[in-house]
Write a protein that binds this DNA or RNA. Structure first.
Length: 413
RNA sequence: GGAGGGGUGGCAGAGCGGUCGAAUGCGCCGGUCUUGAAAACCGGAGUCCGUUCACGCGGACCGCGGGUUCGAAUCCCGCCCCCUCCGCCA
């Protein structure tokens, strides 16, 4: 949600920023509705004031035995007019909220115009090779997944489960050491949580809905983590959380894309980083989250590149986004494994998350940021980059103390 | 699934038809006192719209919406949310 005051105060700047992502025209409708609302509200309130005065006069008149017919008649006329104006104001307000809710965040000036590779890190040891499905064999069981739940659902089995849990535990400990509180959040949430994080009304076609209970399955723990402090005044910022959860995505419109393996599935697990910070700190926090994502990839010995995502590709809530793309020998190219966004005050305003500035003063809207720590896509990258000539896989030694196997034997053919 | 209770300021919590934007306590901010702090005492502080150069002033807002009434935080109706107890399941 954009700041309505900012829109009123400097519409041209907001329009210019929105123009970068092609949403400038919608601002005019917002301004028009805001004008309507303010006009109707102002008039309704001044009539209300007159009503109150008349009410006092009627009471006084009645005490002195007067029937106050003229005043009562005047009161009736006022009531009708106030009601009508009130309805007009409410209609304008409702339309205004809807328009405002549909506007995306203002892009950061340093957000790229088009996807822009920031750097490539790590030597690519293997340009091409077997893909993760071939390497995993039945340890990624898509046949049973499809039979039980449908296509794009997988059973992870055997050593891959140990690998996932080691990855998760290793990442969690790293994050705890950096001040993140580990969290297992709800994955079913109310509409407000999705609205508040900007996924609704933006991406409803991606979201599973449990209609009997009016709940939604979340595609990322970001939704529940952001909502953790909804309607609160958070006293000590920064607050950092590391959420582990399964994630659910309908992947509507992705037909035919990335259909091999578990690169794009309806359900997967993820450790997500989420930060609440003061506005002046969000830029630095974004770099910090990116650095953590890179540190993880580096310690797992995965070659990757960092991409500053172009404004046209930003989600509604993001002002700026970096993706880390790991090299996948099975596909012979870089593919997205992590993503970190600075959503500035966009989610925090929708969710009403504020903080009290040091030394007191009015509560201000906080900034929020999110980033991927580890997901199933890390498993893909580990398999494909760790593969041996014989079809076995060498896994990073750092994960072994966390229960991961040091290597995987070749999948039987 | 059944039966109750409740949503009021940062928090707790009173108010149940006009004198209520709202008692009281805690917390917060400023001041007095103190070498400093604590305690004590004094004062301040919600959001939104309009108006003003400004101090300020006017108005609206007690979960959301509708109704009754000259007048609603208070009464009635609908919706949303929270809690407790019983049952059921883990």
């Amino acid at each position: 949600m954009l700041d309505l005051r900012l829109i009123r105060h400097d519409p041209d700047a907001v329009r210019a920023a929105l123009a970068r992502r092609g949403d400038a025209e919608r601002l005019d409708r917002v301004l028009e509705l805001d004008g309507e609302w303010r006009e109707a509200t102002t008039r309704a309130e001044s009539l209300r004031a007159e009503q109150k005065r008349a009410s006092g006069e009627i009471a006084a008149a009645k005490r002195s035995g007067d029937r106050a017919d003229a005043l009562l008649e005047r009161m009736g006329a006022l009531s009708r007019e106030v009601k009508e104006l009130g309805e007009r104001a409410r209609a304008a307000d409702e339309a205004l909220r809807a328009e405002l809710a549909a506007l995306p965040n203002l892009p950061d000036p340093t957000a790229a115009a088009e996807d822009e590779v920031v750097r490539e890190v790590g030597a690519i040891r293997l340009r091409e090779g077997r893909d993760h499905l071939e390497l995993a064999g039945e340890r990624i069981d898509l046949e049973h997944g499809a039979r039980v739940a449908g296509s794009r659902f997988a059973y992870l089995r055997g050593e891959l489960v140990l690998l996932e849990f080691a990855l998760v535990r290793w990442a969690l400990e790293k994050l705890v050491a950096r001040g993140f509180e580990p969290v297992v959040p709800p994955v079913l949430v109310r509409e407000e949580a999705l609205f508040g994080t900007g996924f609704l009304p933006d991406t409803e076609q991606q979201i599973y809905r449990v209609s009997d209970d009016g709940l939604y399955l979340t595609g990322t723990s970001e939704v529940a983590l952001a909502s953790l402090h909804a309607d609160e005044i958070v006293d000590a910022l920064p607050r950092r959380y590391a959420g582990f959860s399964s994630c659910f995505r309908r992947e509507a419109g992705a037909a035919g894309r990335d259909t091999r393996g578990i690169f794009r599935v309806h359900q997967f697990d993820k450790v997500e980083m989420f930060s609440f910070v003061e506005p002046s700190a969000s830029e630095a926090e974004h770099e910090r989250l990116l650095a953590l994502e890179e540190e993880i990839l580096q310690e797992l010995d995965l070659p990757y590149r960092v991409v500053n995502i172009g404004v046209a590709e930003l989600g509604a809530s993001a002002a700026k986004k970096y993706d880390c793309e790991a090299w996948l020998p099975g596909q012979g190219r870089y593919r997205e494994v992590t993503s970190t966004s600075n959503t500035t005050d966009f989610q925090a305003r929708r969710l009403n998350i504020r903080f009290r500035p040091a030394g007191g003063g009015r509560p201000q809207v906080a900034h929020t940021l999110n980033g991927t720590a580890v997901t199933w896509r890390h498993i893909i990258a580990l398999l494909e980059n760790g593969q041996r000539e014989d079809g076995g896989v060498e896994l990073p030694a750092v994960l072994v103390p966390y229960g991961a196997p040091a290597s995987l034997p070749p999948a039987p053919r």
